[in-house]
Design a protein around this nucleic acid. Structure first.
Lengths: 239, 239
DNA sequence: TAGTGGTCTAGACCACCAG
DNA sequence: TGGTGGTCTAGACCACTAA
């Protein structure tokens, strides 16, 4: 897989920041200098730096330079679009996925609305619980358009749907719209989760889109209150 | 205030999408065409289109064109960096802010860590509750470095701190790191909120930075469970 | 005033998609 | 194969910061 020039420079700089070769609070070399160092044009350097800025590694200050930020404070899922498997693996904890349901269904009215489909489209329904350190703390309900995903097996569900979609099927997931609320726990929550007496769960609703802008799936992720944590890095809109 | 060329083009296109002149699902004119229409270079058009894409208005598809997205589904605080006043006003509901505390303090150890200051710096502490439709549902605790904000009055707290920082003091807020968790309600929550028997609150912790990359304030926003809602629009990282 | 980042240009070549 | 968006270049001028 070929790497773009600006991506290679970005990765190089990220590595140097993470390893502390570029220290928090210090200034990056100027864009002109970097262009010379990397043997490229300034616009290409600027593309790399904009990516660094967007991902919270640096802050550009006009007339001054690019300040390296304290990256240790901006550690986790900055993008908010990370699969459970990726998260669990990087956490270093004991984890496991239980598959409770894997069926093809016709959408009811609510689901038709969520997925913007008619009644004749078939939908995969996947219900899974997630265990971390032997506690079932997340209940994931996925609804996926069969149109894009002809087959799903239990083994795939135990591993990672995202991984299967992207690596096996070649689907390119592009963006998602997420909504977080807190709601009363349902009977289903109590059945599949170690609910520990909590009366409410955190519900994350996700609409996931492909790179051709079509809607792939709707997901409801139901988290036990005490184990929920969401991190976001937000840049102020330009006005 | 002068508007950049790419910003003007961006605003023009946003307006056309919102007004339905550019319909959801249709294609934008190609970048070459747009460059000609607006009398500018293709790179400038690309800057505008990237902004549209980033803000969820279009989806670019290589070899095909830029698809206009259904913007009505991506309505609310996409950025996650919006003041309560802006939000409340746009919601059209009855709202009101109560100021419970406005004092200068020396930071304790926890606060020193949160704000990365030494003990001799002075900090503004502001405690406010937010009423919507006559229910107190949010408790905001702000800790602001006096170094950047010499004076704060009760009237300012009742109105909007962000507005004061940006319009009156000329501070430019650049980005924030947000963390969302659910925690047990404290005595303070019960005192200032209409807690309605809920045992937990949603806690949003925010570190707000200025455009020169220095930390301005730390904020704890404590929401009654049933009234909390957070919306996020996430683009998948390029790999 | 020298140096920084922000914007803009007019080209070029490439990978990808549809007909 | 022609048109699309993605990348890249080598310049230019500007606004801002710090000395």
């Amino acid at each position: 897989m070929k790497e773009n020039k600006f991506m290679a420079i970005y990765n190089n700089l990220v590595k140097n920041i993470k390893e502390g070769k570029l220290k928090a609070g210090s200034l990056l070399p100027s864009e002109h200098e970097l262009a010379e160092q990397f043997g490229t044009s300034r616009e290409t350097i600027r593309k790399s730096l904009n990516l660094l800025s967007y991902n919270g590694y640096i802050q550009k200050v006009r007339g001054k330079g690019s300040v390296v930020l304290d990256v240790s404070r901006f550690d986790f899922p900055v993008s908010g679009l990370v699969s459970f498997r990726e998260l669990a693996k990087s956490s270093g904890k004991d984890w496991r996925t239980n598959v409770h349901e894997l069926v093809l269904i016709k959408p009811d009215n609510l689901l038709k609305q969520q997925l913007k489909v008619t009644g004749k489209d078939e939908i995969w329904k996947v219900v899974r619980s997630r265990e971390i350190d032997h506690e079932k703390i997340i209940l994931d309900k996925d609804f996926i358009k069969k149109q894009f995903v002809p087959t799903i097996t239990k083994d795939i569900c135990k591993d990672s749907l995202y991984h299967y979609f992207e690596r096996e099927l070649g689907l390119v997931i592009s963006f998602a719209k997420k909504e977080i609320t807190v709601e009363e726990a349902t009977a289903e929550d109590r059945e599949y989760l170690d609910i520990n007496g909590y009366t409410h769960v955190v519900v994350v609703r996700n609409h996931v889109y492909l790179d051709n802008a079509s809607l792939l799936q709707y997901t409801e992720s139901r988290h036990r209150l005490d184990k929920f944590r969401f991190v976001d890095f937000a840049r102020r809109e330009r006005r």
